[in-house]
Simulated assay, not measured.
Amino acid sequence: MKFTKEPMPLPLRQHGRYDYSPITERPDFSWPGGKRLAVFLALNLEHYAFNEGIAEDLVPGIPAPDVLNNSWRDYGNRVGAWRLLDLFRELDLPVTLLINSALYDACPQLIAAFREAGAEVAAHGRTNSEHQAGFDEATERSLICDVRDSIAAHEGTPPAGWLSPWIAETAVTPDLLHEAGYQYLMDWCMDDQPVWLNTRSGRILSMPYPQEINDSAAIIGRQIGAEEFADMIVDQFDEMTLQAIDQPLVMSVALHSMIIGQPFRMRHLRRALGYLASQRQNCWIARASDIATHFVAQSGR
């Protein structure tokens, strides 16, 4: 029997942004008030071109002009987000807005209302009709800086955080974000604690952002019902409260106004967020920037 010599395997390509670190072996600390679990709500407010570019669709395969899906997306900013704002106020829950900067021209009243309510405004690109994957470095740098400057002009300060549209990056996105002055990003979903990412000129904080407790991935992507999604939020909170006895953790919930802002889905969200609000003595409910700032102070930078 003749055996052929197999080639030696090449080393697996690695990103180099962070090292492996078991959550059980990290320094201990607590969130403000001695709390062990920090919670933040991330509300995506997005603006799309009409019938151009990429889009989140409710119903696939509709021919152009796709009035059904375009108007469904518009419902989020015209109705859903306003109902959600009322709910957040009713439950006294802080929120982190992840906004497309094009919203300042499309519906400035909406951002102003959340601003008045004390929401953090974080960057979510220019529009979700595009993503930066495939951009050359100069084009991506221009996008990142233009979004920063647009938010700063309206809010008085530049955004601390960034979430890439469609979680799409290039090989240099964290480098460019750090160089543009962003303090944290949410694209990397590998942990239940903030994690420092290496960049070519320093480091930037990765904040936990959920791809499971996320109405887009769950309800649109996996066709999970609103009742089950609400149960997921409650179960995530209860289990993470238990796990946080051993290590301080961050729980986040990702929402999209055109999805969870539909009344029949919001009925179940109301139950889930009401439960979180009732448990605030057992956790720290804050904005993403507040959690990032506290973590940086605890980690010595």
Rank of each mutant, 00 (worst) to 15 (best):
P159L: 14
I111T: 04
S101K: 07
Q109P: 02
D28H: 04
D191P: 09
I144W: 05
D215C: 11
D187S: 05
T4W: 14
T157L: 13
G16V: 01
A168F: 07
D74G: 12
A217P: 00
Q14H: 06
Y18F: 13
E90S: 04
P22H: 10
F264R: 11
E120F: 07
V253I: 15
F229W: 05
K35P: 06
A171C: 09
Y104G: 01
S164P: 01
L249E: 11
I219F: 13
P263R: 06
I62M: 10
Q279W: 10
V296L: 15
L197P: 00
Q193D: 04
V147D: 07
E120P: 05
Q183D: 10
M186V: 08
A217F: 15
S71P: 00
K2N: 09
P165T: 15
L93I: 03
M207A: 11
G225W: 06
D231N: 12
C107Q: 13
A112M: 06
A180E: 03
D57E: 10
P174K: 04
D57M: 10
V79D: 11
F135Y: 15
F29T: 03
G261M: 06
A168I: 08
L68M: 10
T170V: 10
M8Y: 12
Q279K: 12
D146P: 02
I213K: 03
L85Y: 01
V67G: 00
M258A: 15
D235L: 10
W31T: 04
P248E: 05
N214W: 03
W166F: 13
W166R: 11
V95W: 00
I151Y: 08
N214H: 04
Q14T: 12
I62E: 08
V39A: 07
D92E: 07
G80I: 01
V195E: 02
P208W: 00
P65H: 13
A226N: 03
H256M: 08
L12Q: 13
S71L: 12
G225A: 06
F295K: 03
T293R: 14
T96S: 11
G261Q: 09
L68G: 02
E155N: 07
G221Q: 12
F229P: 00
L273F: 08
D105S: 14
T139C: 09
A217W: 15
V79A: 12
P11N: 06
P108F: 00
K2L: 15
V79P: 04
H131S: 03
E120G: 09
A272Q: 04
Y48L: 10
D136H: 04
L68D: 05
S150Q: 14
A81T: 00
R78G: 04
T24C: 10
G181K: 12
M186Q: 13
G76T: 01
R287T: 08
D92W: 03
L87M: 02
V195L: 13
G181C: 13
C283K: 06
S142L: 13
F229I: 01
T127F: 03
